[in-house]
């Protein structure tokens, strides 16, 4: 299942937020979208998900225009994993995951035993079966993110879109969630994430799309995108990009900003 965005543009009233964005992601690929705050990453996500409809250009999902999808059809193709979810009422983890089955249920039906089995499978898959009956509100940020991933998996959609999945997580949980996302891509899911971590997108994703001022700045393999020049253009910061472990990892070190000892 592939997704292809062609010449996508979007304006809020008179302010143009996205110009002429084009990219494609194939089956089993993990794409990271990098870009500074307020650059239109979320708007791009909302257009692809069909939450915003007044965009120009097209979003093709496996060769079909996403505009032609009904709400249910869209959900069967693309699952969305929000940055965080704060349900106003108190649901168990299992109930939250079960909600992901809704696109397969007719409106007057409640989930069946098969749906429950599917949820157990998804909880097992992301390794949180033991949390099944816990209250979602009481989980840590990393556990909540895994619950939302499990919820997306039971949707049986081949495309997963993660909106800054690591934004609220500690260092360990960030790696846990990204490893999970990568292994899903290896299984054949098409995975797209937005992120503020160039180094992590280098570590985990197959390709990077860099967006600046609502336009594609550059896209390509992580090695092509994670360069001092691109980082300067993207974030306005001078960095040294250091390659480690035979270029299996890269880290960005800000130039001219170094540690200062506390003066007494």
């Amino acid at each position: 299942m592939s997704i292809e965005v062609r010449n996508l543009g979007f304006s809020y009233d008179s302010r143009q937020v996205l110009h002429d964005i084009s990219f494609s992601v194939g089956k089993g690929e993990f794409l990271s979208i990098l870009g500074p705050n307020g650059v239109g990453k979320s708007t791009l996500f909302r257009c692809i998900l069909g939450l915003l409809s007044g965009y120009t250009g097209t979003v093709m999902v496996d060769g079909v225009d996403a505009r032609s999808f009904s709400v249910r059809e869209a959900a069967k193709h693309i699952a969305y994993i929000p940055q965080s979810s704060r349900p106003i009422f108190n649901y168990s983890v299992f109930d939250i995951v079960l909600m992901g089955r809704s696109s397969s249920l007719s409106p007057f039906r409640s989930p069946s035993k098969q749906d429950n089995d599917r949820c157990r499978w998804a909880l097992e898959k992301v390794g949180i079966s033991h949390l099944s009956q816990r209250c979602y509100h009481r989980l840590s940020g990393g556990e909540q993110q895994l619950v939302l991933i499990a919820r997306a998996l039971v949707q049986d959609a081949p495309i997963l879109m993660l909106d800054e999945p690591t934004a609220n997580l500690d260092f360990g949980n960030q790696l846990l969630v990204l490893e999970q996302a990568r292994s899903l891509a290896l299984e054949g899911y098409t995975v797209i994430q937005t992120t503020h971590h160039p180094e992590q997108s280098y570590l985990f994703s197959h390709r990077i799309l860099a967006i600046q001022n609502g336009q594609v700045l550059t896209q390509g393999t992580p090695a092509q995108v994670l360069t001092p020049e691109t980082m300067k253009l993207l974030y306005g910061v001078d960095v040294d990009v250091v390659s480690l472990y035979e270029d299996k990892a890269r880290i960005c070190i800000p130039k001219n900003i170094t540690r200062q000892e506390v003066s007494s």
Binding site: V71, P82, F108
Partner: peptide, 23 residues
């Protein structure tokens, strides 16, 4: 009574509900 499952999904907010296939 029949719409009670859909109500669960709607409490998650309009965007999330839509992404899960509920209008």
């Amino acid at each position: 009574l029949l719409l009670r499952w859909q109500l669960n999904v709607v409490t998650m907010g309009d965007d999330e509900a839509r992404a899960m296939g509920v209008n």
